[in-house]
Simulated assay, not measured.
Amino acid sequence: MPGTTAAPRIVVTGATGAVGRHVAQLLPADADVRLFVRDVAKARRMGLPGELVQGDHQDRPDLDRALRGADAVFVVTANPLRPADDENILAAARAGGVRRAVKLSWLGVADPAADGLIARWNRDAEALLRASGLDWTVLRMRTPMSNALAWAPSIRGEGVVRALGGAARSACVDPRDVAAVAVGALTGPGHAGRTYALTGPAPISVREQVRELSRVLRRPIGFEELTADQALARWRERLPEPIARALLEVAERRSTGASEHGEGDVEAVTGRPPASFATWAADHGPHFG
């Protein structure tokens, strides 16, 4: 009909991840949404709205199929040993006529002293985005509160959390808040060329998170401090050596207070303050039950 506006066509990469799943759920109901996923069965089990497009960031035909004719793309990559993933997504976006790209990054890159594998990978990805010719927005997030879900098996089975750096504090952020900012940047005006720092309202330590989960579950949960060697051994069990080492470096930097500072961009974009860990824990209590 004359005067009508076509529904925005938005591609979400990393759609089954901690932030991407919420982006998919928060996008406007009238949006034409494509979810680029490696595991279609997982996405279906999660009940995510939108068209599912199966593929890998290393496979250009898959990306071309997902991005062709889209207006905007949410760019999420997860492996610092695959730096070409961002380049592949952006190349397919340009070829497909995409105008807007919103990139999930890490707030640690704002610290000049952070120069490990993860920081360099995110800095390089941001540089690629800025040079892409697309209208870009960078979302630099602090540690997501959902990382605490990794403790669920030991909480359920043993009533204990084992972690490195129990006293280190971080202004960790609710992934739902990051997703709300992402949706604003994907669908609204005024975000091109902006870099947002996304944190929770206040720093909180691992020990304090455990106490909050204990309060939510109404039962005691113990905490056992891991040594650096013990933590590294655990990461090595499921991750390549360079990434395990990089995670240890991030944990050591966190112990110096590098992750404590909070930022106000969640509220600036969404109009509401970021959620506390207490709120996140109350909403996710059943996962630890």
Rank of each mutant, 00 (worst) to 15 (best):
G262E: 14
A197Q: 13
R156K: 15
R176F: 00
I204E: 12
G257N: 07
T270K: 06
T270E: 00
E225V: 10
Q25Y: 03
L213Q: 04
E212N: 09
S205D: 06
R162E: 15
D59E: 10
S255L: 14
P203Y: 01
A182N: 02
G264Q: 02
G188K: 07
T256Y: 05
T187E: 01
R236K: 11
Y196H: 03
T199F: 00
P286I: 12
L128K: 02
L52Y: 10
E252S: 09
N147R: 04
H284M: 10
E260S: 10
P220L: 00
V40D: 13
A233R: 11
A7M: 12
A182T: 06
G20Q: 01
R68M: 12
L81M: 13
R238D: 09
A7T: 10
Y196K: 02
S255W: 09
P201C: 05
S214Q: 07
L247G: 02
G69D: 13
P28M: 04
H261V: 15
R169F: 08
L52Q: 10
A78S: 14
W235E: 13
A7H: 11
Q230V: 06
W280L: 02
A163P: 08
E260P: 03
L128C: 01
G17H: 00
A202R: 14
A281M: 05
N79R: 12
F223A: 10
A233D: 11
I118Q: 14
P28T: 08
R60D: 09
D229H: 09
R254W: 13
R218E: 15
A24W: 09
H284Q: 15
G97R: 09
V181H: 00
W151D: 13
P2Q: 15
G184D: 15
I204R: 15
A29T: 13
R194E: 10
E51Y: 03
G200Y: 01
R9S: 14
V216S: 08
M141L: 15
R100H: 07
A43P: 00
H191N: 06
L217P: 07
A91K: 03
V269K: 02
D64H: 12
R65A: 15
A15Q: 06
L232W: 08
N147D: 08
R45L: 14
E263H: 15
L186P: 02
V23I: 05
V210G: 05
D174Q: 00
A91Y: 00
P286M: 07
L247S: 07
R207F: 12
W106S: 11
L213G: 05
E212R: 13
E224P: 06
V33L: 02
S276F: 00
L198T: 01
A70N: 05
A150C: 09
Q58H: 14
L107M: 02
G14C: 00
A6Q: 15
A70M: 13
L139C: 03
G133E: 11
G47W: 04
T279A: 15
I221N: 06
A84F: 13
E241I: 13
T256E: 06
L67H: 01
A233W: 06
R194V: 10
R218I: 01
N147W: 01
A192M: 06
D85S: 11
